[in-house]
Design a protein around this nucleic acid. Structure first.
Length: 762
DNA sequence: CTGGGGTCCT
DNA sequence: AGGACCC
């Protein structure tokens, strides 16, 4: 959980808030303006520290953002204490194998440090109570709830591990400041160096914003306490790095704000390389190899010196971090990109033993996948071979057929996945000879919703619950030219991402075939097929046509119960969508400028059809339901709100009935106000503005509710892009500009995942 | 004697 | 497939 013990001890040296630059960096009213403006005015002044003047070391965002970092206190220990309150006043350690990974504060007072060996811990504290923390289920679920709660305050929430979240509360702060007399505003909690006098306060308005941020942070922490019973620490600052670092200043259950004038002196309190998150083990070693032992030596180092060893980009980010400059945006990542389970042990040396281990792991993962609702297209096996003095891991991965997961027979699923795993294992070791493994990890990645793409998600967006059953949407890659059911994937192959991402020209043919229905082995009746096709524009590097389809299979089958959404909103507020969309806007700005200009290009083509060909046993005999009916039914089902499992149920005690709080309730209300504007469908189809790459004639044949949703979707897209443009033009913060389009294409846009997965899962 | 997860980049 | 980073 925490940093390795070797570099644990930290010295807060260099406590010397002397030199302050007297540069007059007043900025005309960033405060009160509707959004971030005039980036040139927000640039941090060049510091009196000479080496800081290297231009790449300056923030482009200045103090314009307000970032909150929330860190749960000794998270695993807290979860266990919630489960068993009698542990509260005892020294508690969470044990994983031979290690105490974290301890409660009682144990810390007794000198038991995190990440210590059981033996040593017991020597220091013989009455230490140890609870096994090898099964992360509880922690993971609690962690998810924390993120979900925080997402009620602001859409931009980024997880870091299970116990930390960053929030970009800039907009929230702004809207609150417009209705508050900031003169009377005093920060809540601690502020870094608050006792000291400071002659030159920053005039850009950041003080008020940070102050307001501290109030928001307090509300967030109070909510986590009242709803989940969890205590936490918060840091408030103008970037993620500073927020995180300053939050650690007052440790359990408290918060700290860093006002901008103090940034330099604050950063100078960090001297060890590893104190900066982002400078890890290997960078640290490399630096020391170059004769750079600490941050004081690193900070004045010219970029060019580091660039030889690290490359220009990494060199710059390292130096910037060392100076407390961090323009990276807070990015909501949505549900996890991978689900993995692992176990370590003294020895696994036979195939049966390995199989047993792997079935255990796979069983757990199947449970998690079922509850997640998505389907993995890739499986990876990682092992650690016993080599004294080495903890090296090796892995092999392979694509897996998503068809396996369409069925609900988990026994045969397990069987087949185990076979795949054994196959991978045999690529790693000769299972006929004696071997010695000390760790096995199985990881499912390339997770895709059954609903894959684009506007289809909007069908499920009205009720913020999963429409159970009836419509199973299945992503399709290549198709098997013979069976009619698309063989999305063969296990010998690589991940589906390759097929979707690096599409060979051959795919054109596939799409066409599919389009004309020859693949299915029969000619579909026209009215059964709704096909919307949109060719993805190509990156200049490739001339091939990339395209894939999503087919809507109509089934009568009800999906397994128990799907749990990640980061779904807790209230029934319909504002989710707009929130996640506004989050997309900010996200898009930072990472992919070109997508702003090209808009829909990112959306791969999508196809909707009612499939005649169902995988055996899984679909109705007669799939003659039309899409429209299917959609309608699914919405009917979805509208029946399932019993809302709220957080109170699961928080074991602390039943201090606390409605989230006044202002939050108000905000939620406001959100629904501006969100709910029913998109009335225009009578005259010719008037409807549709994206240039959508075939109007195809659009016209869609069911009307589908049209409405599409139009609504497009409008939201449009607004989002407008936002992006606005932000993009105001902040030239475009760190990763020259990503290859192919890799960008491969990347699932988190935004898409966010909007989709939220709604069809519950 | 070194968890059990995750992320992204190359 | 591996390596870096984070917790």
């Amino acid at each position: 959980m925490e940093r390795r013990w070797e570099e644990e001890q930290n010295d807060i040296g260099g406590e010397d808030p002397e030199e302050e630059d007297d540069v007059d960096w007043r900025m005309p009213s960033a405060l009160g303006s509707p959004s971030i403006k005039a980036p040139s005015m927000l640039i941090q002044p060049s510091s009196s520290i000479a080496h800081r003047s290297e231009t790449c070391l300056q923030s482009k965002l200045g103090h314009s953002r307000t970032i909150v970092h929330i860190d749960l206190d000794c998270f695993y220990a807290q979860v266990e204490m919630l489960r068993n309150p009698t542990l509260r006043d005892k020294p508690l350690g969470i044990q994983q194998k031979n290690i105490v990974v974290t301890t409660n504060y009682v144990a810390r007072a007794r000198g038991v440090s995190k990440l210590s060996y059981i033996k040593e811990a017991l020597i220091k504290c013989p009455d230490l109570v140890l609870v096994s923390g090898e099964d992360l289920t509880n922690y993971r679920e609690t962690s998810t709830k924390v993120t979900e709660l925080l997402e009620q305050f602001c859409p931009l929430v980024e997880r870091l591990g299970f116990d930390e979240n960053f929030m970009d509360v800039t907009k929230l702060v702004e809207s609150r400041l417009t209705s508050t007399d900031s003169k009377k505003l005093v920060h809540i909690g601690h502020s870094y160096e608050s006792d000291a006098q400071i002659a030159t306060q920053c005039q850009c308005g950041c003080r008020d914003r940070l102050t307001m941020g501290s109030h928001i942070a307090k509300e967030m922490r109070d909510t986590l306490k009242s709803k989940l019973g969890l205590t936490s620490c918060a840091g408030v600052a103008t970037n993620k790095l500073l927020a995180k670092l300053v939050g650690a200043h007052h440790k359990p259950n408290d918060q700290t704000v860093l006002f901008s004038e103090w940034t330099d002196s604050f950063m100078q309190t960090f001297t060890k390389l590893r104190q900066i998150p982002g400078i890890g083990h290997s960078s640290g070693k490399k630096l020391k190899g170059m004769g750079i032992q600490n941050l004081e030596e690193l900070r004045p180092t010219p970029v060019s010196t580091l660039a030889d060893q690290f490359g220009k980009q990494q060199a710059e980010t390292m130096l910037r971090l060392a100076h407390g400059v961090d323009d990276t945006p807070v990015v909501s990542k949505g549900p996890p990109q991978s689900l993995s389970d692992e176990d370590s042990f003294k020895k696994v040396g036979t195939l049966p033993a390995a199989k047993e281990m792997m079935t255990g792991l796979i069983k757990n993962l199947i449970k998690r996948l079922r509850s997640d609702g998505r389907i993995p297209y890739t499986m990876r096996l990682t092992v650690r071979k016993y080599v004294p003095g080495s903890w090296h891991r090796e892995s092999r991965q392979t694509g897996i057929s998503p068809n396996l997961f369409q069925k609900h027979d988990d026994a045969s699923l397990l069987e087949q996945l185990l076979e795949v795993a054994v196959g991978l294992l045999q690529k790693l070791i000769d299972t006929n000879r004696p071997f010695h493994l000390t760790l096995i990890n199985i990881c499912f990645t390339n997770l895709r919703s059954k609903v894959t793409k684009g506007a289809i998600d909007s069908f499920f967006s009205k009720p913020a619950v999963k429409p159970k059953g009836l419509v199973t949407l299945q992503s399709q890659g290549m198709c098997d030219g013979k069976t009619g059911e698309m063989e999305v994937h063969s296990s010998k192959d690589d991940s589906i991402a390759n097929e979707l991402g690096d599409l060979p020209a051959a795919n054109t043919e596939v799409v066409d075939k599919m389009h004309f229905g020859t693949v299915s082995g029969h000619k579909p009746r026209e009215e059964e097929r709704y096909v919307i096709k949109h060719k993805q524009k190509q990156p200049s590097s490739s001339g091939s046509v990339a395209s894939f389809r999503t087919s809507v299979n109509v089934t009568g089958k009800v999906e397994a119960e128990g799907s749990k959404s990640f980061f779904k909103k807790l209230g029934s507020s319909p504002s989710n969508k707009s929130k996640s969309l506004s989050c997309r806007g900010e996200l898009g700005t930072a990472r992919k400028p070109e997508s702003v200009a090209t808009g829909l290009r990112e959306q791969s083509s999508w196809t909707v059809d009612t499939a005649r060909d169902a995988p055996e046993g899984e679909f109705d005999e007669d799939n003659s339901l039309l899409l429209e009916e299917a959609i309608r039914s699914s919405q009917n089902v979805a509208l029946k709100q399932p019993s809302k499992r709220t957080l109170e149920e699961s928080s074991s005690h602390d039943t201090t009935e606390c409605s989230v709080d006044d202002s939050l309730a108000k905000r939620l209300k406001n959100d629904s106000d501006h969100e709910t504007k029913p998109t009335t469908i225009k009578q005259n189809m010719e008037e409807i503005e549709i994206p240039p790459d959508i075939d109007r004639s195809v659009f016209n044949v869609l069911p009307s509710n589908m049209k409405e949703e599409l139009i609504a979707d497009w409008e939201r897209e449009k607004r989002r892009r407008e936002d992006e443009c606005l932000l993009a033009s105001s902040s030239q913060n475009l760190p990763k500009n020259k990503k290859s389009s192919s890799s960008a294409k491969k990347k699932q846009l988190p935004a898409v995942r966010n909007t989709i997965t939220k709604y069809f899962k519950h």
